[in-house]
Amino acid sequence: MKANQKRKVSAEKKKGTLLPYLWKHKYLYLMLVPALVYYIIFCYIPMYGASIAFKDFNPMLGIMKSPWVGFDTFKELFGLKKFYSVFWNTLRISLIRLVFGFPFPIIVALMLNELREGRLKKGIQTAIYVPNFISWVVVGGILTNILSMDSGIVNAVIKALGFAPIGFLTDEKYFVSTMVVSMIWKTFGWNTIIYLAAMTGIDPQLYEAATVDGANRWHKLIHVTMPCIRSTIVIVLITRIGGLMQAGFEQIFVLYHPGVYKTADIIDTYVYRVGLQEGKFEMAAAVGLFKSIVNFILLVIANKAARMAGEEGIY
């Protein structure tokens, strides 16, 4: 964008020693200290702490002094049926969410973009952004309300149509779909913002030129709008793929129950139960580390694929 406005922090950039340089910019570096401390304590020390997956963790000894046990925990983990089940559940929920939840905001943003600026557009945007700002506990409350078997509106409609009411939150068959749909309900509106922002950045002259060439609205959408937001779409897709291991802990934690563990128990809920409720820290940390590594690999692959396809990628 405005790449030309590079700032000159220092005149003596190349010559001179480090200390005078640091002294000259001492306030700048000082202002960075709190953030640096935060990142070290709450991000990098836990990364080191993930090494307890390879240790026999003893809270009295701490992370450093606990004895190493190598891959024992992982061996045990990979022998557990439950591990494959939570891994698969996580991936399955995320993939369903990606397939339906990723294109939806793009379509809605394109639809909104076809509206003239004005009250109607503002009103619709206001309404669809709201669900993003409420907590998953509130969403849970709202879901139990509208999906209730006896008095929820959804089942009232189903019954009025002559069908049997559905236990959206209690029946194992429907629980995951309910999670996916409610996740999309909560996030689709807000996710349109990034595309709408990209669309406001499109040069109006492109549309004018297209009009002169005799393009109709559909042509403009396909040949002007879409190519212009393509890089945004790719960036969002990469971050989504990098987040495939996040199947929505808070959402599922609020609503799940042993009756739906078979399909809805995900890595994070499992880590919570095993680590914090059963106190098996090493096991839980091993699952968590495995998850982080898979996440990281997915992100790198997605980014590489995007670059090979000629896109910018996220790093």
């Binding site: 020390i45 990364m47 080191y48 993930a50 839980a284 968590g288 998850k291 996440n295």
Partner: peptide
């Protein structure tokens, strides 16, 4: 891109 995880 990478986190230590819940437990650490």
């Amino acid at each position: 891109m990478f986190s230590g995880g819940i437990i650490p």
